[in-house]
Amino acid sequence: MAIDSLITLTGEAWEDYGLVDSGNGRKLERYGRYHFIRPEPQAMWRPAQDNWQADGEFIGASDEDGGGRWHLKPYVPKDGWLLQWEDVCFLAQNTSFRHLAFFPDMAPQWAWMRERVTEDAEILNLFGYTGVGSLALAAKGGKVTHVDASKKSVASAKNNAELSGLTDKPIRWIVDDAVKFTAREVRRHRRYDGILMDPPKFGRGPAHEVWRLEENLSDLIDEAVKLLDQKSKFLVLTVYAVRMSALAIGELLSQATQHLGGCVEVGEMAIKEEARGLNLPTAIFARWKND
């Protein structure tokens, strides 16, 4: 199936999060009662306001690969503070990777998947991180397998499950390399009704396995699709490596799922700015659906 159009999936502000303003390579965001400034290369325009008031700012390093550190007011809780999205509670925290322990632009994807999750649906969340996506699906009745190579991330996800009152939900918490776990599930002849994949640009597994997005994504998609069948409902792939093309990952997913029927949507993810309503692009995505 050929990809002939791109769509923009725009996240709106909610009570505990908003993109307040952006411009000059930075963005001002609201995370509950705190405001933070972070670098944002996509914000090439001028901001709506000149004097931003914030509780902290991440100052990036000069090298292209990232780095930098937070400069926070002393009252910002180092152990995080509670936020909520719909029926899911979780901790936001200033991490060394410049983000806040979750990705707010994923909210439209969470909502889209929740519409397709039926009671007892089997869902696989690869690179599950702190578990907000897993909990959003479990709250709708899904049986979720949450996989991440980081023990710390999985521990945070379990803690978020407690904060959300979802510890009684059928969630498997797996500390493992996503590629190896997926291959084992294929050998076990497991199937899933839906898969969420949010792979990093670079990572290491618990046994020092090396993940490189450009080199490993194609093989992982081919293996993950083997866990789906014609009764499955979705596969969502999000990519934050801006050098890749939405059309490229769309064609990749389209080829891998063509035997299943359904269709593939591709495009950009964005967050709507509160100041002027413009859309700040954040990531690209491809998703297969079988409605």
Rank of each mutant, 00 (worst) to 15 (best):
H208A: 14
H259D: 13
E209W: 06
A224C: 09
M244E: 11
W211Q: 07
N216T: 01
Q255Y: 12
G203C: 03
I249V: 15
M197W: 02
M244D: 00
S218N: 12
A241N: 13
A248T: 11
L227W: 13
E251V: 02
A248Q: 14
S218G: 09
V264E: 12
M197T: 07
R212F: 03
G261E: 07
M197C: 15
L260H: 05
I249M: 09
L220F: 01
S254M: 05
W211I: 07
V236R: 02
A224P: 05
L253K: 03
A256W: 01
E215S: 15
M197S: 13
M244A: 01
C263R: 15
V225G: 12
H208E: 15
I249D: 04
G261V: 08
D229Q: 03
L235F: 13
G203Y: 02
R204M: 07
L247D: 12
S245R: 12
D219F: 11
M244N: 06
A207L: 14
W211P: 07
V264L: 09
T257L: 01
H208M: 13
M197Y: 00
I249A: 05
S254D: 08
I221G: 11
L217E: 01
A241K: 12
E223S: 15
V242C: 00
E215T: 14
E214I: 09
L253M: 09
F202P: 04
K201C: 02
V225E: 10
T257F: 00
G261F: 11
K201H: 10
A207E: 14
